[in-house]
Amino acid sequence: MAKYTVKRLLQSLLTVFIIVSIVFVLMRMLPTDYYFTEEQQMKYDEETKHDMLQAAGLLDPIPTQLFRFYRGLLRLDFGESRRIQTGVSVWSIVAGKFTISMRLGLIAMAISLAVGVILGVLQARQKDRLMDHVGTVYTVFVNSVPPLVSYSLVLAFGARILKLPSLYSNRNPGPSSILPIACLALTSIAHYALWTRRYMVDESTKDYIKLARIKGMSSQSIMVRHVLKNAFVPLAQYIPASLLLTLGGSLLVERFFSVPGMGTLMTDAINRYDTNVVQGCVFLYASLGIIGVFLGDILMMILDPRIKLAGGGETR
């Protein structure tokens, strides 16, 4: 177990390492002109620009730059922002964004877990009856209608009819978080409901359930003590990943409601060629994704003693 964990961790590190390297090289493939703002472009002559690039180490050969980047990476130091907030360290920018995304994400996740699992259970219990159909229509809707449309509907309904604020504000974080949370939860409720239903339906046809029925257990307690408990195990695998990904925020939701979180930070950083911030974000996203999957596997192992992940198992 310990050996397996260590091996998996090392593999994950390698993946993260490859990802940041690729993005680093890709960013360096952009013309160096991109490092200047429009104003700087106008104001500086070629010589000045050359000097500034040199001072920033951007004219060194890529391997040298990569090496310097790795040295920083070892200390988890991504340097300073150039454009988002001139001269401020990447970590402190990210940290500020992070808390906001996380708060919204965690609330949305708690809501969608609760609602999603309950919906899934109801659907499974009333399979092929009204509740099941309602749930199915909902999951189909969410899965197939583009989020741009469904968020617009939430926005129109929330802002026009319920008169909720459509813009996130720190002055009234409560009310102004309702719509973004609703949008975040909208999709993940469907996700949890779908899988809960599927696992429960699968589980309830198994022999031991039949046995329990024959023994005369009430269907209520069968559902809760056997079916749900077992169906929850595969579901649990995804919880750490979704949990960690909430830190990353949802780009579209954040853009829609002007939430100053990680999702918007990343697009801003790319749009302004703030390479250090982009690199920091990519590192964070990749690590969160990979650690999430890893924790999910471990969690599943803990929850279900039957599952043993072999030492040479897959990375996912």
Binding site: E80, I84, Q85, T86, G87, V88, G96, K97, Y168, S169, N170, R171, S258, V259, P260, T264, L265, D268
Partner: peptide
């Protein structure tokens, strides 16, 4: 000096910037 933020800088104008949340308010 370069890279200071609203909590560190000195002011002599009519207002001080007491809160700054990027792309929000």
């Amino acid at each position: 000096m370069v890279g200071m933020n609203n909590t560190q800088m000195w002011y002599n104008g009519p207002y001080t910037i007491t809160e700054y949340i990027m792309n929000n308010e």
